[in-house]
Structure formats: C-alpha cells, structure tokens
Amino acid sequence: MSMTADDPVLYLVACGGYPAADLPAFVEYAQGAGWDVCVVATPSATGFLDAGRLAELTGHPVRSAYKRPGEPDVLPPADAIVVAPATFNTVNKIVAGVSDTLALGLLNEAVGAGLPIIIAPYPNSALAAHPAYAASIATLRSWGVRLVIGRPGDPRAGADQPGRENTAFPWDDLRTALATLRTVPPRGADADS
C-alpha cells in the first residue's frame, strides 16, 4: 500500500505468541484505515512472525533490537502504538518501567510521552490469574492505556486450561479499538483545524 508522509504512524509491537503469525492481515487493515505501519518485535516474537513479509507489506524493516550509537533511525516517530499480542512478561515489565528490549523501551517512552496505546494481552489462564498481572492491568488502565481483553467465556478471550496457549485472538475487537485512534491528527496537520 502506498503511504504518504502525512499518514499517521502506528507502531505495531509484537510479543512472542502464536497470534504474531497473523500480523499481516492486521497490518493490511491498519494501512487501509490510513496508518503508516511499522512493526517492532520483541526478541521472542521473531520466532513467531514473518519479518520479511511484514517488511514487504509496510515498507519498513521489522526492528527487534536497539540501533547502534550514531546509526540513523530507520522508522518514523510513532503517533500511536498497538501491542498485539502482549505477553504476561511484557504487560508486567511495562508497568515496572523495564526497558530491556527495544519494544519495551519504545512502549515506556510512549507512556511517558502520553501517546495513545492499545494493548491486547495474550496470557494463558494460569498467568492471567496471577496477582501481578491483575495489578498491572489495573495500572495500565489508570494510565489511560486502552486494553483489548476478551470476555469471560468468549473463546477468543484466552485459554480454557491452565498452561495452554490461547487458540484464538480478539482481532475484531482490536480493529474496533484501532478505529478510535483515527482521531490522531496526521503528520503536518494543524491540530486546531
């Protein structure tokens, strides 16, 4: 898809989980909605996604590591961030302010800068029941982070057996949430107009 310099930039952060393999369809949806999409992967996510295909779709390299000092940024600055899927580890590390990966560093900067963030957690049911996770979810909400969490009993919501990965992911709910971010003014637009 042909993007312009005026399109708002969406960083799509992927963590290690099976839904990361389905990112191309979400990238195409976001591009159709007018976003210039850049994919940033945690190191664990690189084993779940097709970086070449995502780079081809977005026109940007998939980043998973910090750049070396003096190297130019290869991605434009983000106007908003979507994390899909978000692991238990990443959810808790954001709240703790840990920036030990590029993805976490960008997320922590975005929280500090007040950028719009949508997170779609993907823990198994045992991890979702962990007290630290519940506290982290509450903290993220208090910070204004939008969370896309499946409803109880919804097969898209999560695992039905402790220790097993989810079998589905709430992509439709995430698309709906992304539509709310279209209020972000495009780059170069006058915010008062």
Rank of each mutant, 00 (worst) to 15 (best):
R63E: 14
G153D: 01
P76K: 14
Y122W: 13
L147E: 00
P131T: 05
D173N: 14
W143Q: 15
G112N: 05
D172Q: 12
T90C: 03
A120E: 10
N166C: 09
P72F: 01
K93C: 00
R156V: 12
W171Q: 04
V82T: 02
A113Y: 15
G153E: 04
P76R: 15
D173Q: 13
P152W: 07
Y133S: 05
Q161G: 01
A86S: 14
E71Q: 15
G70D: 14
E109T: 15
L147M: 06
V91I: 13
A138C: 08
V74C: 05
L178A: 06
T42G: 02
A103W: 02
L140T: 04
Y133L: 04
G158K: 00
W143M: 14
E165A: 14
S44A: 15
L174R: 03
A159M: 13
A168P: 01
P61M: 06
A51T: 08
N124R: 11
S142I: 05
L115P: 01
R68H: 14
P77S: 10
V74F: 10
A113M: 13
G52K: 15
A65S: 15
L102N: 08
K67Y: 13
A96L: 14
S142G: 08
N92V: 09
L178K: 06
Y66L: 15
N92K: 12
P155C: 02
P85K: 13
F169E: 00
I119N: 03
Y66N: 13
Y133H: 07
H60I: 00
L75V: 09
